[in-house]
């Protein structure tokens, strides 16, 4: 007799799992961070910024290789930052951090 109930139970279970998913999204997305925990852009690791704003569509390794292959490092940096100002949802300051990260100017300087 349990069989006739299983289909309905599966729909209910799936619905509850979907509700849990949406609740998770709402809680994580809206959870206000404590004031002291809100990091300034400078304090957020650059790779986190890349993961947050770019990684859904772009792969870091490929982008780094592409940008570093260009001979004019400063020109490339400027052009890319200008491009990012009109692309995606990161702030201007975050755009600069992301480009610095991709060009490898974060951490040890490349020769």
């Amino acid at each position: 007799m349990v069989h006739s109930l299983l289909g309905r139970a599966a729909w209910v279970f799936g619905g509850l799992a979907a509700a849990a998913t949406l609740a998770f999204a709402a809680l994580v997305d809206r959870a206000p961070a404590p004031p002291q925990a809100v990091p300034a852009v400078r304090e957020v690791p650059a790779d986190d910024l890349f993961a947050q704003h770019c990684a859904l569509c772009h792969e870091a390794g490929a982008m780094t290789a592409s940008l570093r292959a260009k001979p004019d490092r400063e020109g490339t940096r400027r052009e890319t930052v200008d491009f990012l100002h009109g692309h995606g949802e990161a702030s201007d300051e975050e755009d600069v951090r992301i480009v610095e990260f991709l060009l490898g100017t974060q951490g040890p300087q490349t020769p």
Binding site: T21, V28, D29
Partner: peptide
């Protein structure tokens, strides 16, 4: 899902649909 909510390592909000995608994936 509950564990991810608990550890919540994302420093700045990524948007509702991105988190919903993560939840659905889990």
């Amino acid at each position: 899902l509950a564990f991810a909510l608990w550890v919540d390592p994302i420093a700045t909000p990524r948007g509702f649909w991105t988190e919903a995608a993560t939840g659905a994936g889990f």
